[in-house]
């Protein structure tokens, strides 16, 4: 069993009208099973309303499955007595940085989590320092969070989760409200956490470019896992993704359009370098490589 395992997870909620009468049942997550290994970089994609955020909330026991089971580091999220351990194992970062920051000073905010866990003061400061360094925000430790940019605030939010020493971090559209630079900073920080610190990362996003380095991609639709595979496998299926209201990275889309015009390019090109090399090979008639 990996760090996170979901088995046949279904989540239903009852819709009620204004008088409280039952109107119907919505199945937000429908029989989802997945197994995530320690140290993996996992991406979850899906259109608005596909059930990805609802599913993510199961990973640290904010929601409990109607049917099926979720294990975090071997602990069943249904077990009330394990909830604190589960939340320390799988930390969560949300979309809006302004809703997640409470401290007056950056370092106090980051220290809030470990302080609540009863970590000794000296160790709190050590954790604050290493967490801020991990997201490249150490030099801002004495600043007021109000004066930071969106990307900086979001990195402080991530540091706040890191300070609780989780094994796994779940990010629910952390870049949706950021400008291109802020987006780049946050994604760079997340990738470094995964690469350098070996942190398990689960990233939910609407930006296809952000996940080309993921180990595995899950695509949700109507509460189910509609597609899964490596970024290359998934992004090779341009038409299918478009039907699911998604997209592919711009480079992949350009390669796909060129294929349609008759250029013999491989499926699922993900980076500019790959595309440029393939096109040069074509131009030079150097095709034996394929």
């Amino acid at each position: 069993m990996g760090i996170i395992k979901a088995e046949n997870v279904t989540f239903e909620y009852i819709r009620r009208d204004e008088e409280g009468n039952v109107e119907g049942i919505t199945t937000a997550v429908d029989n989802v099973s997945l197994d995530i290994e320690q140290g993996q970089f996992i991406a979850i994609l899906g259109h608005n309303g596909s059930g990805k955020s609802t599913f993510a909330k199961h990973l640290n026991a904010i929601l409990h499955p109607t049917e099926g089971t979720v294990w975090v580091n071997g602990m069943n999220t249904r077990h009330e007595e394990d909830v604190w351990d589960i939340r320390q194992t799988a930390g969560m970062v949300f979309q809006n940085p302004d809703n997640q920051i409470i401290g007056q000073i950056v370092e106090e905010d980051v220290g809030f989590g470990p302080e609540n866990m009863g970590v000794p003061t000296k160790e709190i400061w050590e954790r604050v320092e290493e967490s801020l360094k991990a997201v490249g925000m150490y030099e801002f430790r004495k600043h007021s969070p109000n004066k930071l940019s969106g990307g900086q605030k979001q990195r402080v939010s991530i540091a706040g989760v890191l300070a609780m020493h989780p094994k796994c971090i779940v990010l629910d559209e952390p870049t949706a409200m950021l400008d291109p630079n802020g987006r780049k900073e946050v994604i760079r920080a997340i990738r470094a956490l995964n690469d350098v610190e070996g942190m398990t990362v689960i990233l939910i996003t609407h930006y296809m470019e952000e996940i080309i380095y993921a180990d595995k991609v899950f695509i949700m639709d109507k509460g189910k896992v509609a597609m899964e595979g490596t970024p290359r496998e998934v992004f090779s299926q341009v038409e299918k993704l478009k039907k699911l209201r998604l997209d592919v990275p711009q480079v992949t889309l350009l390669a796909y359009e060129l294929q349609k015009k008759g250029l013999p390019l491989p499926d699922g090109i993900l980076t500019t370098e790959e595309l440029v090399q393939e096109l040069l090979d074509l131009k030079n008639g150097n095709l034996e490589r394929r």
Binding site: H47, N48, Q95, A176, M177, H206, R245, L246
Partner: peptide
């Protein structure tokens, strides 16, 4: 378009 899926 902030926060919407690609099709949206």
């Amino acid at each position: 378009t902030a926060g919407l899926d690609p099709k949206g």
